[in-house]
Amino acid sequence: MSLLSVSRNPLKGLKPVRIQFVWNHAIRLSSGTFGTDNMDAGEEFRQLELKPTRTREKFQRKKAPVHMIMPRDYKRANKIDPDNVDWKSIWPGPRTFDPNAIPIPVRQGRLKPKQRAFGKTANLELMKIPTFFHLTPPAIKAHCEELKKFCTPFPSELDTKEKCEKHFPLTVITNDYLHAAPTIRDPLARIVTIKLKLKDIPLDEHARDKLMRIIKDRYDEKTDTLTIVTDRCPLRKQNYDYAQYLLTAIFYESWTVEEWEASKTEADMEHYVWNRNTSSKALASILNWTPDKLGKSIFHDPLPEDKLKPEHHAYGKAVKNIVEGETEEGWSQYKKAAVQVLLRQ
């Protein structure tokens, strides 16, 4: 008897709740006789409720049936024979992890450290990883086998490093990148580095000095190597051409002598020459000094070459040593030379 039918009854004034209550009470009283099949074995004895307590059944939402939308090839992995599988043809290219296509019980992710990790199905963490299933060692081997026919053997004449360097003085370095990502391009692949030993290009003293000023820190003194890195163009070929252009340009630029180069001052010089500097003038002034020259410190004339004594040369050498890089030894040398020059012996 449903509540709806009750409401249609002629007994209109009665509230439906009341009726329900009565009905419940009746069932409760009679449960001892015909309600046994509802009871479980371990349930307690019936109780006689003289003043029945009203219990409202908890409203429970019906659980919606789970409609899992399975992919078309659901459980494809079951069809794979683990002992005899041609994996290269099943998984030829890069793809996201697919729990149904890969027959391994891999797990990932925990809520607590001691818990077991989650299974592979619908596991987002597993899908985030760029997989290498298409690049297994046998697959790589097969790729290499395929590529082998396009390769040529290394020239047998270039058997030593010296010969290589002699015939190919210019080294070009580029990088290719292999990804698990869907794209085969990498912006870093455009960068071109060229290396060259300066002994391989003809330079005189002036040209070498000028080249040094142009290339600055691109030159490594230890290995005598010039390194040019170009990355400003979007394509590798453009960068390579640009590097070639730069090399050509700096070479010819270093050989040209401009007019303004004649007006180089002492500060612009690449080497310290003692006889051109104030140090030698000061020494000359001290040697030529007389008490009447009070207040005239430097006379602007270095000593002529023929008047220079060995101790003056030693002093000049010591000064050069210090100016080009001072050390404790340099200073003790300078001290010896200065004592020779300044004091009575």
Binding site: T278, S279, I286, E328, W331, K335, A338
Partner: peptide, 11 residues
């Protein structure tokens, strides 16, 4: 340096 040179350095 240009003001003092030559001088006797004492360590």
């Amino acid at each position: 340096w240009e003001h003092l040179d030559p001088f006797i350095p004492i360590n």
